[in-house]
């Protein structure tokens, strides 16, 4: 009888403990899916949801605050996503908060990111619609970058032609007679400047991203840390930075030269005597060309790495308009 009771006690402990553990585990799993929390529903309308499904997570400032409960097509250009947001986090979402669709981790689970708006807004109410950021595809971003790069190359070719003309003494005078040259040079300098600026912006963006990656932000960060992707990325940033510095240098030199050209014939002779300057410009152009080529190959490597989608989207999206405008006018 004694052992019988004892055995039952042991069995009871086993059953109760296991059931409790199971309940806790279920709660932990379910908590993530907002199953046991009361939620509030809001909506967001996207042009393209990129495969967003019900059950995907919703993040606010990177923290999970809810799930997508329904995705419906409301017209040919509008897909409505219904978002269940935990009540406790709901207060932080305002009328100026912006929703965008991103990717969680590598394997392409879509998420809805809600970012706080720049201006303070009114708290959102149940059933209301969030502002939405248009999706920017990585391909677009990369294409833009490529175009910028091509432009840089074109410009350097131009510059090279000019400097070679400078070097060729027999054409010196015809060159000097042509007043359009000075104008040309000036324009080229301006172009190079803005391209250099763009390139610097890109490189800054990439550097920032690398810093983030180094800190190991998110699963992406940790994934990238050891891979060759990281090296590519780093190299690209460095290339771009180098190119932009070179471009600036050329622009400076050319600026100085065009200034000299513009200011009186007296100084032309002196300037042309200065073979050092000519060689300097020449070297700069070659360096720049090499830099651009490097950047090109790095860019190519990056393009094949769809892991970077998310980062490119965010970082380059601001630069995009400027760049396309610039390169567009050049082409």
């Amino acid at each position: 009888m004694e052992t019988k009771t004892n055995n039952r006690l042991k069995l009871g402990i086993f059953v109760v403990v296991t059931t409790l553990l199971f309940a806790i585990a279920l709660y932990k799993i379910g908590g993530k899916r907002s199953m046991f929390n009361s939620t509030v529903t809001i909506n967001a309308v996207f042009k393209n949801v990129n495969g967003l499904m019900s059950g995907n997570n919703v993040r606010f400032g990177g923290i999970e605050i809810g799930t997508v409960s329904k995705v419906t097509i409301i017209s040919d250009t509008a897909i409505q996503a219904e978002l269940n947001i935990e009540k406790s986090s709901f207060g932080h979402i305002t009328s100026t908060s912006i929703a965008s669709i991103g990717t969680d981790g590598l394997m392409g689970n879509k998420i809805v990111n809600i970012a706080p708006g720049k201006k303070s807004g009114l708290p959102l109410k149940e059933g209301q619609f969030l502002l939405v950021l248009p999706n920017i595809e990585l391909d677009n971003a990369l294409r833009t970058l490529n175009k910028t790069n091509d432009n840089l190359e074109l410009i350097t070719d131009d510059v090279k032609v000019i400097t070679s003309r400078f070097s060729a003494k027999n054409t010196l005078w015809s060159l000097l007679m042509d007043t359009a040259v000075a104008e040309n040079v000036k324009q080229t300098v301006l172009d190079i400047r803005s391209s250099g600026g763009n390139a610097r912006k890109i490189s800054n963006g990439l550097s920032e991203m690398i810093v983030n990656v180094n800190k190991g932000k998110g699963t992406l960060g940790s994934l990238i840390r050891d891979s060759s992707l990281y090296l590519n990325l780093n190299k690209a940033a460095m290339d771009i930075r180098l190119s932009s510095r070179k471009a600036e240098k050329i622009a400076e030199d050319l600026g100085a030269m065009s200034d000299k050209l513009a200011h009186g014939e007296g100084s032309i002779g002196a300037m042309l005597e200065d073979t050092l300057l000519v060689r300097h410009i020449d070297e700069s152009v070659i360096d720049f060309k090499r830099g651009a080529a490097n950047f090109d190959s790095s860019m190519e490597a990056l393009k094949h790495n769809y892991f970077l989608r998310k980062y490119f989207k965010k970082k380059d999206q601001k630069n995009k308009k400027n760049k396309t405008d610039d390169s567009g006018s050049k082409n």
Binding site: L223, R225, D226, S227
Partner: peptide, 9 residues
């Protein structure tokens, strides 16, 4: 996973 650089997974 190490080859893939995904130890955190």
């Amino acid at each position: 996973l190490e080859v893939f650089g995904a130890e955190s997974w």
